[in-house]
């Protein structure tokens, strides 16, 4: 099973993370009219980098710049509003909708890669 999982590479982690981010962005959109609600998001690249098998960069020489390892990448960040609104709500529909549509497209991309890999495996199994 490990082999098949390895065959999918980064895409299964990416898919799970994209799905999580979709939930967060949907929560932001749902709260677009709630006073004092602060829009949140995750740093996708940093969180995915943590899930990658290579892990953080190791320093083998004292002159190497160490990567900060105590950073909890899967933490939710608060969004910095472009135009702060009076009621303390930091959800900006334009921003959220753009992020959401980008995330959906990237989810579909990962899904397409997964699909290709699955059909590749299937044709290897069938041997046709």
């Amino acid at each position: 099973m490990d082999g098949i999982r390895q065959h999918f590479g980064i895409h299964d982690d990416a898919l799970a993370l994209r799905s999580k981010r979709n939930d967060i962005l949907a929560s932001n959109i749902a709260n677009s009219a709630t006073p004092h609600f602060k829009a949140r998001d995750i740093d996708f690249e940093a969180t995915l980098a943590k899930a990658m098998p290579s892990g953080p960069l190791t320093t083998t020489n004292e002159r190497h710049v160490a990567q900060p390892s105590n950073m909890r990448a899967d933490r939710l960040h608060y969004r910095d509003p472009v135009n702060p609104s009076l009621d303390g709500n930091t959800v900006e529909l334009a921003v959220e909708q753009m992020q959401f549509s980008e995330n959906v497209v990237r989810y579909q991309t990962s899904l397409t890669f997964m699909n290709r890999k699955v059909s590749g495996l299937l044709s290897a199994i069938k041997g046709e």
Binding site: K20, D23, I24, A30, N31, F37, R40
Partner: peptide, 9 residues
């Protein structure tokens, strides 16, 4: 919510 970031209204 601190892990999955889900919130509704």
């Amino acid at each position: 919510a601190s892990e999955n970031g889900i919130a509704t209204v």
